[in-house]
Design a protein around this nucleic acid. Structure first.
Length: 112
DNA sequence: CGCCTGACGTTGC
DNA sequence: AGCAACGCCAGGC
């Protein structure tokens, strides 16, 4: 089978999967952590494929502004916000509240 | 093989 | 401070 997906996606999945509950992360940060500067788009792209990965909480991944830009890509446009609020993350106007407070930095927390 | 799109980010005005 | 355009990289057609 083929299905040889680029490790690139897998890398993103691993990082996103490490995101603890009640925390959120940004695409650019993950990209930067993976060494893919300017590859924030690729991270989001990977998230799209992550939809096939149940262990990949893409709803915990938002953009640099903390906006749920990809909420429209979920099963329902409200699913992302619902999941976040369910985990203790308050979302207002499609934006994560206290985003910088619950922000999860792999280089700082997941840091070796 | 080439063009377009895309869950972003940064810089410039 | 808000808006616009550009840049990066990869996948789909």
């Amino acid at each position: 089978m083929k299905s040889e997906k680029p490790n690139y996606f897998d890398l993103v999945y691993q990082v996103v999967r490490e995101i603890p509950r009640g925390r959120v992360c940004s695409y650019g940060i993950i990209a930067n952590y993976l060494g893919i500067k300017s590859g924030a788009r690729m991270v989001g792209y990977a998230m799209n494929a992550a939809h096939t990965m149940p262990d990949v909480p893409a709803h915990r991944v938002v953009n640099r502004q903390g906006l749920l830009t990809g909420r429209h890509h979920f099963a329902t446009p409200t699913l992302m916000q619902e999941l976040l609020e369910k985990e203790g993350v308050f979302v207002e106007n499609d934006q994560v509240k206290d985003f910088e407070k619950i922000f999860w930095n792999p280089e700082t927390e997941l840091k070796v």
